[in-house]
Design a protein around this nucleic acid. Structure first.
Lengths: 117, 117
DNA sequence: TGATTATATTCAAAAAAATATATATTCAAT
DNA sequence: ATTGAATATATATTTTTTTGAATATAATCA
């Protein structure tokens, strides 16, 4: 697994994509409906964002029936994982990220139980 | 000192700006002519890139006679410094960054002695 | 003062990216 | 098969960013 630094940063330089990544960084995985609910924008926009993140290898998806679950690609180079960890650590308690977290935690009828911390 | 994550990543999602930052991460400071020499593109392009990095607070400059020396802003939030450190660690030995380093190290008539490691 | 060196800014054109809307796909259940 | 639910893709339009060339500024020195 290889990733280009410029592509990585292009991916992160977009509000919605950034919020998706921050959300995924605190969950083992989330399905599209959960991300959509958390961020509160139209579904095609979330799908597009997640698709772009997937295209450059930052995240992977897993289908389970109707749902598609996304997660951070575990095969990313170590430095990228560490960089993402620093990012998460740095912004997770600020708006809008912390709010996204609160919203998804309160989502009714989630496809699976909440997975991570 | 505060910095917006999206702005940070926008700044880094550009070849020249990224090469500037990587260069500055391994030197206490570099003047515009050194960065220009290292990267090998037209001077106005380097000035513009450094100016953009300065505008969002990622770097600062210091005038010394005709030269303007740039350095990473020491007042960045810790998480940003750590993130940049991970980035540097991750890419410094890859092209084109390692080559930029070699080129600047061999530059004749540098304004000051090489400063860092 | 005038020339020179180092750096910065401006501006129009080109390229790239984002947006919104509409539509398509995929799967499951009836 | 038809329906409905979850997700994905396509397209046209708008907005933002990048580029290159020309020009401007700022400091030094003769």
């Amino acid at each position: 697994m290889d990733i280009d630094a410029k592509e990585l940063f292009s991916a992160l330089s977009h509000d919605i994509r950034l919020r998706c990544i921050i959300l995924l960084l605190s969950h083992d995985e989330l399905c599209v409906c959960e991300v959509t609910y958390a961020i509160g924008v139209a579904q095609p926009k979330i799908s597009l964002s997640l698709g772009q993140l997937r295209k450059i290898g930052l995240v992977k998806d897993r289908r389970e029936g109707l749902w598609i679950h996304y997660h951070i690609n575990p095969d990313l180079p170590l430095w990228v994982k560490e960089l993402l960890y620093k990012l998460h650590q740095g912004v997770k308690n600020a708006a809008p990220y912390i709010n996204d977290e609160t919203v998804v935690a309160a989502m009714p009828n989630r496809p699976g139980a909440p997975r991570c911390a």
